[in-house]
């Protein structure tokens, strides 16, 4: 990491000799930049490759020194081991459904609330905002004890309701949409609509929703990813292997008395692959969403 930093400093030094850096004016890009970026890409991607290498060689291979750096042919066996230990494909299906439902609900309720908090004169708005910000800052784990007890009383343990209901809307989503709506919706447009006599709902449906659809999509993506990757709560709440989500299924392999490294990594890889595939399609939108949110935030 230090090497990379030095490279970057030399890059900026080199490219900015007499004149100061101007990002708007294009200047020659030094090869060191590409080297640094390639290195970062390699670091970002290597663990996935490594997961596959470990999973496709046997567990004995892992303890070889030097470790083999190339994949072996053992992957189908490993998949077999995984599916025998846990209904893995079912877990992927469960997770896909739960994540989608939560993402859609989250987007829906967040847009509603975000709009109201951004543009409407709702009584008590300021107080609400402060209250929400304050609570957002506390780690989520604080409430887990109580939540678990509640789920126990409601008899929602091992039921998907325990996963979905607590997650259908969140403060982060509401804030995100509030910021987006605040910045993307000019007040004049709103004023004009009001003068025309439009009801609040009409304004929401016809003006707000179409405008924020791209941002809402990004929120949905984040929500989907977050739910897919959530580990602690589902592992507490789900007991039946048929109900497991992907992360819980992975921990099943991690939990046996003797950890089978190949199966462990294989499961982790299989659990991530659907996201990687999704990322191929929507990755650019995600990147755009992150950057958009950065400026607005």
């Amino acid at each position: 990491m230090t090497a990379t930093l030095e490279q970057m400093e030399t890059t900026t030094q080199q490219s900015a000799s007499p004149k100061p850096r101007r990002r708007s004016i294009s200047k020659r890009v030094s090869p060191f930049t590409y080297v640094a970026l390639t290195l970062m890409t390699f670091i970002s991607v290597f663990p996935f490759y490594w997961m596959y290498v470990v999973a496709s060689n046997g567990s004995e291979e892992i303890s070889k020194i030097p470790p083999s750096l190339t994949p072996g042919g053992n992957f189908p066996n490993v998949v077999n081991t995984i599916t025998q230990a846990v209904p893995f494909w079912h877990a992927i299906l469960n997770t896909a459904i739960v994540s989608t439902v939560i993402a859609l609900c989250n987007v829906f309720f967040s847009t509603l609330a975000g709009f109201a908090l951004a543009k409407l004169r709702v009584p008590g708005k300021r107080g609400m905002l402060l209250f929400i910000i304050g609570t957002m800052m506390l780690p989520a784990q604080l409430g887990v004890i109580f939540m678990y007890m509640v789920m126990s009383w409601l008899n929602w343990i091992n039921d998907f309701k325990a996963l979905v209901v607590p997650a259908i809307v969140g403060a982060f989503g509401v804030f995100w949409m509030r910021q987006i709506i605040d910045s993307q919706l000019p007040n004049e447009l709103l004023e004009a609509a009001r003068i025309d006599g439009a009801s609040v709902f009409r304004i929401y449906r016809s003006i707000v929703v179409p405008t924020v659809l791209p941002a809402a999509f990004v929120l949905g993506l984040f929500s989907f990813l977050g739910t897919w990757n959530d580990y602690l709560w589902p592992s507490l709440v789900l007991n039946d292997p048929e109900r497991f989500t992907v992360q819980v299924a992975i921990t099943q392999l991690n939990n046996s008395y003797t950890v089978d490294y190949a199966a462990n990594m294989g499961a982790a890889l299989l659990g991530t692959t659907p996201l990687l595939l999704l990322f191929i399609f929507v990755g650019r939108r995600l990147v755009a969403g992150v950057m958009e949110g950065a400026v607005k935030g």
Partner: peptide, 13 residues
């Protein structure tokens, strides 16, 4: 989607 999701959950039970 919500209906389907909860239905699937319910069906599992």
């Amino acid at each position: 989607a919500v209906a389907t999701g909860l239905a699937v959950a319910g069906a599992g039970v």
